[in-house]
């Protein structure tokens, strides 16, 4: 059983939803980012999405664009992001890590080498924003052959015709993007999320995580009642932007994570 499967199965048995947290690797710098990464599981994160910085994050809002720039300015590279996962795995064998980003840095690194190294350092899944199923052969197929899950985004624009195509080769979990827009944009109503999950359920048995626009423990709790996972990204990344020092960034992100975890874990209680 993969780490992602195991984690979602365990949480299902406990009767609660997963807190999925996103941070950008290398933001605000390698060391602080690694500290945040290592601290997230204890602060209640069940699954970690680790952003691979790219100069042109077309699907991201301002918060993650700025996080990307901070990381790149601090010298983050794809090789360093893999190194970060390697260091994380020394102390943690159970929390799944999903790398999230855009295709070009991987394309440049070399798909074959990337897949091999990602597997070796303990990456569990990939979310590549600009690789729709039409381009499965490039990365999804080799990644899955190596035992790395390929997680797809479904969105309010994914209709019944398109959905089977998107879900066909999805693995790990399904990430429902609850609003048409960039990351950090306005949030969807619980009514909308409820309907969307019901629709997805007719097509897949995979765990469904919901993201985009979820910022507070209250919002997270509301979504946790409906879904298998709740993704929070921009709100955490904003804490890094606002911090006056790397130390403060670490402590502020981890305290928000704890508060979110409380919301998510208590949601169905």
């Amino acid at each position: 059983m993969s780490r992602l499967e195991q984690r979602f199965a365990d949480l299902k048995a406990e009767g609660r939803s997963a807190l999925v947290t996103f941070i950008t690797a290398g933001d605000p710098g390698y060391d602080a980012s690694l500290k945040i990464l290592k601290g997230l599981p204890e602060a209640g994160a069940d699954v970690i999405e680790l952003g691979m910085p790219f100069t042109d994050p077309m699907a991201d809002g301002v918060a993650i664009q700025l996080a990307t720039l901070r990381a790149l300015e601090a010298g983050q590279t794809l090789a360093k992001t893999l190194q970060m996962v390697r260091e994380f795995r020394v102390g943690n064998q159970t929390t799944p890590i999903v790398l999230m980003g855009y295709y070009n840095p991987i394309h440049r690194f070399g798909v074959e080498q990337f897949v091999a190294e990602a597997k070796a350092v303990g990456v569990d899944g990939l979310i590549i924003v600009d690789l729709p199923p039409e381009h499965d052969a490039e990365l999804a197929t080799p990644a899955q052959a190596a035992g790395i899950d390929f997680i797809r985004l479904t969105t309010p624009t994914t209709d019944d015709v398109r959905l089977p195509r998107v879900l066909e080769r999805s693995s790990g979990f399904v990430y429902y993007v609850s609003v048409a827009g960039v990351t950090g944009a306005g949030s969807a109503t619980t009514e909308h999320v409820k309907e969307a999950i019901a629709c997805l359920r007719r097509h897949t048995d995979l765990p469904i995580s919901v993201g985009f626009g979820i910022r507070t423990p209250e919002q997270a709790a509301a979504i946790a009642k409906l879904s298998d996972g709740v993704v929070v990204g921009s709100a955490l990344v904003d804490k890094i932007a606002q911090a006056k020092s790397p130390e403060q960034a670490v402590s502020d992100v981890l305290s928000l994570c704890s508060a979110l975890a409380e919301g998510v874990h208590g949601a169905r209680g």
Binding site: A59, E134, H135, T157, D159, V177
Partner: peptide, 20 residues
Amino acid sequence: ANGLFGAFGGRYVAETLMPL
């Protein structure tokens, strides 16, 4: 049909844009 000129072109966009 996939918008490829040899190895170039294609549709590398976010899923939200694919139906569009």
